[in-house]
């Protein structure tokens, strides 16, 4: 059984859909993404694009460990992890960039 000590990101699965960011009651997830044309798709005004995740962070000083983000992610890109977040000397040091 997996422990509930932190949350990890499965980078390949994340579509930057923003659902976890919006559902988090503590506002502790932040992500940044941009969209790029899908390689090989026909160019032009209707070229198909996809989102590329640039940065994803969780602020462990605010996280409630409620698991809502894990539940809500439609792409199984967030999962409970056994690893404790790294300790820090100040609250701002508890913001972890997940990769």
């Amino acid at each position: 059984m997996t422990g509930h000590r932190s949350i990890r990101l499965v980078y390949e699965n994340c579509t930057s859909c923003m659902i976890c960011v919006r559902e988090c009651p503590a506002w502790c997830i932040a992500l940044s993404s941009h969209s790029e044309p899908i390689p090989g798709s026909p160019p032009g005004p209707r070229q198909r694009t996809h989102n590329i995740l640039d940065a994803f962070s969780i602020d462990w000083s605010l996280c409630l460990y409620c698991g809502i983000c894990v539940e809500e992610c439609p792409f199984d890109a967030l999962a409970w992890s056994d690893e404790l977040p790294a300790p820090a000397a100040s609250a701002s040091g508890l913001v972890e960039e997940l990769t």
Partner: peptide, 25 residues
């Protein structure tokens, strides 16, 4: 929550929240 920027205000694929469609938490 009114004064702090909401991280969910961005749309997917946005690097910064664009002002045109405002989302409020």
């Amino acid at each position: 929550r009114v004064v702090r920027p909401w991280p969910g205000a961005k749309e997917p694929g946005e690097t910064v929240a664009a002002g045109r469609r405002r989302m409020v938490p």
